[in-house]
Design a protein around this nucleic acid. Structure first.
Length: 477
RNA sequence: GGGCAGGUGGCGGAGCGGCUAACGCGCUGGACUGCAACUCCAGUUUUCAUGGGUUCGAGUCCCAUCCUGCCCUCCA
């Protein structure tokens, strides 16, 4: 199962519980559907972890020459949105769009590429209604008092994604007041309208989509049956994804909905899942106050994407130190655009311009193989850190450029950190003046003054490093 | 109760049948430095939850036990 050729990619398929080679419905093209947000509140760093993981998956696939269509839905009609909107006194749509826009800002601030499309459920009511109707006509769903429910007993494969057996699920299930299910495991495809709620016309009367149907309908509408990868966090496996598979594959007469399900782990705090309901969350905005986007990205990627990730500030600071090491080593080099190792060597390198020596080769082989093996980012970073150490030893600038290119491929940036927004371009010049004053002090062996300058600058986040070529400064990450 | 993931050093975190168990953070000593920082070198530490078993050989497979998290209700 170890990928020998880095052009092949292996991912753990939740459906089959093993790593599988990624095979595509259409050669060269990857259709990726990721479960996005229900925008009724701020994005927190748990959400951001998931989106970062899929951002990296998409970047890696793209860097391998695949054309990725990345879709991330926005569930803009939902109980929580409706309730929250009522509290705040705005329409549900207004509230949803406000938080969706905020989430878009936050993900951009974290350095993620925007998905190619963020479909809103409310823009896909027609396909949803159509799908529910088909399910009803085929006898897999039934209408009761304005609601429509999926009849789980009609699906012999129900439970295959989460590994649950129907009778075991039955034990814990119950029917909520106001529901009209025949069986506790059945789930709503369509909810009849209640006073004050947004609703749309449908054959069963006014109402709105149930929770799971929107993803099925939008994925099928936008990507079509048998699309390549369906993603989301682990917690969504049941019931959300299980129900998506059930309704979609019954709708498709047993044909596959998604080829591969790849789930990422959740973020925990002190061993408990970070969640809005527990209140143990840190919003992305708060998070960006204490660490840069690069530090967050590294913090996320130093753990395997499918593993749980326990957050606390000390661990974040470990990532900060680690990023500082990468940044100070690589920030002064031009990046060599990332190219897949096998492709680079197979196609030959025109004019011999592309770096290709033993150190570069060794790094690329490890890095590419790690990412191809279920997106093993911890090992990819082991290769990066080893390469950085190697660079410090042998000062092979090609190696530094290639490593920097690899980091940029993963979504890291090496922008010069601005010392201060207020001072703008003036600040670097002032710092350089202080560095010069300090140099003169050191020449006089006035170490009291020189240390004072260094210490005071450090207090405001400017770090000085004396090198044989002179003093250089950098902002604390 | 059921399903699914796990339990590896001071802290994170890879490895999942076979070199002296990656990598990061931390710590100690040395080099460099006016002193630091950065960097390099040398160390630091784990018989890989526990008890059995399979195997020439096991964190790595099997069984049992203990513990943790996730899901079974909205949640990335």
């Amino acid at each position: 199962m170890q990928p020998k050729e880095p052009t092949r990619i292996f991912l753990y398929n939740t459906l089959t519980r093993q790593k599988e080679e990624l095979t595509l419905r259409e050669p060269g093209k990857v259709s990726l559907y990721v479960c996005g947000v229900t925008p009724y509140d701020a994005l927190h760093i748990g959400h951001a972890r998931a989106f970062t993981v899929y951002d990296v998956l998409r970047r890696v696939l793209t860097a391998r020459g695949l054309e990725v269509t990345h879709i991330q839905n926005v569930t803009d009609v939902d109980d929580k949105i409706i309730n929250r909107a009522a509290e705040v006194g705005v329409s549900a749509k207004e509230l949803a769009e406000r938080f969706a826009a905020e989430a878009a800002d936050d993900t951009r601030a974290l350095g993620m590429l925007p998905a190619h499309l963020y479909p809103r459920v409310t823009d896909y009511i027609k396909p949803i209604v159509d799908m529910v109707q088909v399910l009803e006509h085929k006898g897999y769903a039934y209408a009761r008092a304005g609601d429509v429910y999926f009849d789980v007993s009609k699906d012999p494969q129900y439970g295959k994604l989460s590994g649950q057996k129907l009778d075991e699920l039955e034990a814990g299930a119950r029917i909520e007041p106001g529901e009209h299910k025949d069986d506790p495991m059945d789930f709503a495809l369509w909810k009849g309208v209640k006073p004050g709620e947004p609703s749309w016309a449908a054959p069963w009367g006014e109402g709105r989509p149930g929770w799971h149907i929107e993803c099925s309908a939008m994925a099928l509408e936008l990507l079509g049956a048998g699309f390549d990868i369906h993603g989301g966090a682990r917690e969504l496996i049941f019931p959300h994804h299980e129900n998506e598979v059930a309704q979609s594959e019954m709708y498709l007469d047993g044909n596959a909905f998604a080829r591969l399900w790849w789930h990422c782990g959740v973020v925990q705090v002190d061993g408990k899942k970070m969640s809005k309901s527990l209140g143990n969350f840190l919003t992305v905005r708060q998070g960006l106050q204490i660490a840069s986007p690069q530090v967050w990205r590294l913090f996320y990627l130093m753990t395997h994407p499918r593993s749980p990730l326990d957050y606390n500030e000390e661990r974040l600071m470990q990532a900060k130190s680690a990023w500082g090491r990468l940044y100070s080593a690589l920030s002064t080099h031009e990046a060599e655009p990332y190219r897949l190792f096998a492709a680079a060597t197979a196609n030959g390198t025109p004019n011999g311009s592309a770096p290709d020596n033993a150190a570069v080769r060794h790094f690329r082989e490890r890095f590419d193989a790690a990412l191809a093996d279920d997106l093993n980012t911890p090992i990819a970073f082991a290769a990066i850190f080893d390469a950085v150490s190697e660079w410090h030893r042998i000062h092979d600038d090609d190696l530094a450029r290639v490593v920097r290119g690899a980091l940029e491929m993963l979504g890291f940036t090496f922008e010069v950190q601005q010392p201060s927004d207020e001072l703008g371009e003036l600040a670097p010049r002032l710092i350089e003046m202080l560095v010069e004053v300090r140099r003169e002090a050191r020449e006089r062996r006035d170490f009291k003054s020189s240390d004072n300058i260094r210490n005071e600058l450090e207090k405001i986040g400017v770090l000085l490093e004396d090198t044989p070529e002179g003093t250089r400064w950098k902002m604390e990450m």
